[in-house]
């Protein structure tokens, strides 16, 4: 992933679905992870849709997807990476600047 140029909006986040996912993950404190079903519930997305967008975010190394086993049931945990959190903050800053963030 090449770093975004100044004034350009990060194309990975600049899509309503992925923006919602990133915004939701950003509400978790640093160091916390969330399960796939709970994230799905918070977003009201279908599993297929959520998986597709998560893969794009994962490819950009903005989210970390971990598969663990609790007993026999596999549990998927999702968290924002440091780069992902930074990208989200840069993105919101860029939006505010576009809206005349001179103040």
């Amino acid at each position: 992933m090449s770093p975004t140029q100044q004034g350009e909006l990060d194309p990975v986040i600049h899509a309503a679905a992925r923006l919602k996912i990133t915004a939701t993950l950003a509400t978790l404190p640093v160091g916390d992870r969330i399960t796939f079903p709970r994230l799905q519930e918070l977003l009201d997305m279908t599993p297929g849709n959520l998986s597709t967008h998560l893969r794009k975010l994962e490819d950009a190394e903005y989210v970390l997807v971990d598969k663990e086993h609790q007993g026999r049931t596999p549990v998927t945990y999702i968290a924002l990476t440091k780069a992902g959190r930074r990208a989200f903050e840069d993105y919101t800053d860029a939006l505010r600047q576009l809206l005349g963030g001179t103040a």
Binding site: H14, A16, L19, K20, A23, T24, A26, T27, E41, L42, L43, T92, A94, L95, R96, L98, L99, G100
Partner: peptide, 23 residues
């Protein structure tokens, strides 16, 4: 067009984070 877009995206973020808080 870009500022409209930016306002819309900020609204998307705010609405989703409110939804998470509420839930």
């Amino acid at each position: 067009q870009r500022t409209d877009d930016a306002a819309e995206m900020l609204a998307v973020i705010a609405a989703q984070q409110r939804r998470v808080d509420r839930m």
